[in-house]
């Protein structure tokens, strides 16, 4: 039995391809409680989207499969072994999702009202068509779209990017899901629109007791929105902690790099930005040691041999790095903002 709303243990997801198996997610464990927001941060290809899609087994006919030994407990029910019927109930009612690109994830041939009402009627057959549309309009008003009665009759191409993302949010919350997954919710938007959408999500967070999972590569939006953050790299979680712990005392060299490669207000102009050499590893390969070892400036012989264990630093903060070992040299985090 688990007391958490969602508990993921040793989740591993792979894709079969003509060249072999691509191990996109290589054993991640985490949990989520009601009302809290967890952020998963990492570069493209690190497995963050694959991880959250696995929570609902949203793979369709793609070649992805969840490896044996993985466990996803949502309200103490195992998601991995669910059949189609149970999954349809879980998707929408249990977990809702806001996708990255609002243009490609909305159906261009259906009105937005239909697309919101569709989910409502699917999950509650007793709702009449009129009622469902009425609720769709209410939801549009809730996500801040003016004149919602007009808008529900419109098609996605008649809306701007920011509006479309608001429609996506309305669909995700339409069936009162316990967990809302936001997969790069603002990547496709301009900064001023991004701020509006984030504000809306923040409002929803405060008004409802929903749990949020935010998937992003943008550290700037993470610290304003999330409670806890986990840093992913090549399919594993390298560091996790509350946002204050990760900001004040990041322990993993990759977290340092992520934090420092973005120029901040204080950073020296035209100075050298902290950057990591090389590129992420090929996920087709077996990675023996730490996946970051090849790019890490502090790499020791052991790093290439064995994956470090997760070292707890506080109740919420832990890191996977050999530098935490008592025999490792003491290394100080580089100063933020780069050097001249």
């Amino acid at each position: 039995m688990s007391e958490h709303l969602l508990e993921v243990k040793d989740l591993a997801v792979s894709f079969s391809s003509y060249a072999g198996k691509i191990r996109a997610v290589r054993g991640v464990s985490f949990h989520l409680d009601a009302g809290e927001t967890l952020a998963i941060v990492g570069e493209s290809g690190c497995g963050k989207t694959v991880t959250v899609k696995a929570l609902m087994k949203l793979y369709g006919n793609s070649a992805a499969f969840i490896e044996e030994g993985s466990s996803i407990l949502f309200k103490n029910e195992e998601v991995v072994t669910m059949d189609r019927k149970q999954l349809s109930k879980l998707r929408g009612e249990g977990i809702g999702m806001i996708f990255q690109d609002p243009m490609t994830s909305l159906n261009p041939t259906l009105t937005v009202g239909y697309q919101i009402a569709e989910g409502i009627r699917f999950h509650d057959k007793s709702v009449s068509k009129e009622e469902a549309y009425k609720r769709a309009a209410e939801l549009l008003a809730l996500v801040g779209i003016p004149s919602p009665e007009e808008r529900i009759k419109q098609y996605p191409h008649q809306l701007s990017g920011g509006m479309r993302q608001r429609v996506m949010i309305a669909i995700a919350i339409a069936c009162d899901a316990d967990i809302i997954i936001c997969d790069e919710p603002t990547t496709a938007l301009d900064v001023t629109i991004q701020a509006q959408v984030l504000e809306l999500l923040n409002e929803l967070k405060e008004k409802t007791n929903k749990a949020f999972i935010l998937v992003t590569h943008d550290l700037g939006i993470v610290f304003d929105f999330a409670d806890r953050i986990q840093v992913m790299y090549a399919g594993v979680i390298l560091e996790r902690g509350t946002k204050y712990e990760l900001f004040d005392e990041p322990h993993h060299p990759y977290t340092w790099a992520l934090l420092n490669s973005v120029p901040s207000k204080q950073s020296q102009r035209k100075g050298t930005l902290y950057s990591i050499q090389g590129t992420p590893p090929d996920l087709m390969m077996d990675i023996k040691g730490c996946p970051f070892a090849d790019r890490c400036v502090y790499c020791m012989p052991i790093c290439k041999e064995r994956m470090p264990e997760e070292t707890p630093l506080s109740e919420t903060h832990s890191v996977c790095c050999w530098l935490e070992h008592s025999m490792a040299p003491k290394v100080k985090a580089p100063a933020a903002g780069g050097e001249e």
Binding site: S160, G162, M163, D190, V191, T192, I193, Q194, A195, Q196, L198, E199, N202, D218, L219, G220, I221, V222, F223, D224, K243, Y244, F247, L259, V262, S264, K265
Partner: peptide, 27 residues
Amino acid sequence: RALFSAIPEPDPYHSWLKSRVHLQGEI
């Protein structure tokens, strides 16, 4: 002013989202 205040700042102690200049509507 509105544009610059919407730059996300990676700082958990200072919420750029709350202190930004609000812009209504879209381009």
